[in-house]
C-alpha cells in the first residue's frame, strides 16, 4: 500500500546529536536554575553555585547546538525577528535567549564576586523561567506531523519535566551529596517513570525503544544509589546514572519519532 512504500511525512532534517542534545541540555539547565533559586531562598548555600554553573553551561551549550543545527547559522538572530505563539520554536527562542543570558550573567557575577546582587536578581529570574525551559521542548516535538511525537503530546511534557528534574539532581549529586538533590531526583524519577509508562500505553512504538529501556534502568539505578547515605562514590554514581538516563530519554524519544515516519505511512492527526 502507499506509493512505492515511501513515507508520506518527511523525516526531520535536524542533526543528531545537536537536537536531542539540545533537548537534554535545555531540560537539565532549566531545572538546575530553579534548583539554584530554591537553594538561595532556603539557605542551602553550598548547592547554589553548582546549580548555577549547570544552568549556564547547559543553556549556553544548548544555544550552541541549536545554532549549529540551523541551515543558515549566521541568521540565528532571525529567531527573535517575530514572536509567534503558533510556533513552539519561536516561543522557545524567546524563553531560551533571556534564560541563557541570565544564567551566564549569574555565574559571571558569582565566580567573579562582583555585582553579586545583580547575579542574585538574574539567578532568580532564570529560576522562574527554568520550568518553562524544561517543558517547551516537548511541545516543539509534538507540534509536528511526526506520528509518535504528535500523538504523545498529553504525556510528553511530563516525561520531559521528570527527566529534567532527575538530570538537575544528577548534576548536583556529581558535585556533592545533599538531601534536596536526592529528593528532587526521587520526585523526578517518579514523574518520568509513570508518565513514560502512560505515554507507552498511548503510543506503542515507544515500547520497543532500547534507549528508553536503558533510560528507565538508569533512572531506577540513580534513585537507588542516591539513597545510600554518607558515601561520596555512590552519590557520584547516582548523579552519573541520572544524567545518562536523561540523555537516553531524549535520544530515545527523538529516534522513536523519526523512525515512526517509516512505520506509519499515513498520518491522520
Amino acid at each position: 500500500m502507499g506509493y512505492y512504500g515511501r513515507p508520506i511525512v518527511k523525516e526531520p532534517v535536524w542533526k543528531v546529536p545537536d537536537v536531542p542534545g539540545y533537548l537534554f541540555l535545555g531540560g537539565m539547565a532549566g531545572a538546575s536554575a530553579s534548583m539554584a533559586l530554591a537553594a538561595q531562598v532556603s539557605g542551602h548555600s553550598e548547592l547554589i553555585r553548582p546549580a548555577r554553573v549547570a544552568a549556564a553551561v547547559g543553556s549556553l551549550a544548548s544555544v550552541g547546538a541549536l545554532i549549529h543545527d540551523l541551515g543558515r547559522p549566521e541568521r540565528f538572530l532571525n529567531m527573535l525577528r517575530v514572536f509567534k505563539v503558533t510556533s513552539p520554536l519561536s516561543v522557545g527562542s524567546w524563553i531560551l535567549a533571556p534564560f541563557s543570558g541570565l544564567t551566564a550573567l549569574t555565574v559571571a557575577t558569582d565566580l567573579s564576586g562582583r555585582f553579586r546582587w545583580i547575579g542574585s536578581l538574574a539567578g532568580g529570574a532564570a529560576g522562574v523561567l527554568g520550568p518553562a525551559m524544561c517543558t517547551y521542548t516537548s511541545v516543539l516535538l509534538a507540534d509536528t506531523a511526526i506520528p509518535a511525537w504528535h500523538n504523545a503530546y498529553p504525556e510528553l511534557p511530563f516525561v520531559f519535566a521528570g527527566s529534567a528534574m532527575t538530570s538537575a539532581a544528577g548534576a548536583s549529586l556529581l558535585v556533592s551529596p545533599s538531601r534536596p538533590a536526592v529528593r528532587l531526583g526521587l520526585i523526578g524519577s517518579g514523574l518520568e517513570l509513570t508518565s513514560t509508562a502512560a505515554m507507552e500505553r498511548r503510543v506503542e512504538t515507544y515500547r520497543s525503544s532500547k534507549l528508553l529501556t536503558a533510560a528507565k534502568a538508569l533512572t531506577v539505578a540513580g534513585a537507588g544509589l542516591s539513597l545510600v547515605r554518607g558515601n561520596r562514590v555512590t552519590a557520584v554514581l547516582a548523579g552519573a546514572s541520572y544524567l545518562a538516563a536523561g540523555i537516553c530519554t531524549r535520544f530515545g524519544v527523538y529516534r522513536t519519532g523519526t523512525a515512526s515516519v517509516k512505520l506509519v505511512s499515513v498520518q491522520s492527526g
Binding site: 531545572a31 520550568p131 517543558t135 503530546y153 529534567a164
Partner: peptide
Amino acid sequence: DLPAMWKRAGLAAVAVAAGVAVSF
C-alpha cells in the same frame, strides 16, 4: 492540537516548580 499542548506543557512546568520547591 497546539492549545491543548501548551496547556499540558504549562501543567508540567508547574510540576517542575512544585517538585523543586518540595525538595527544599
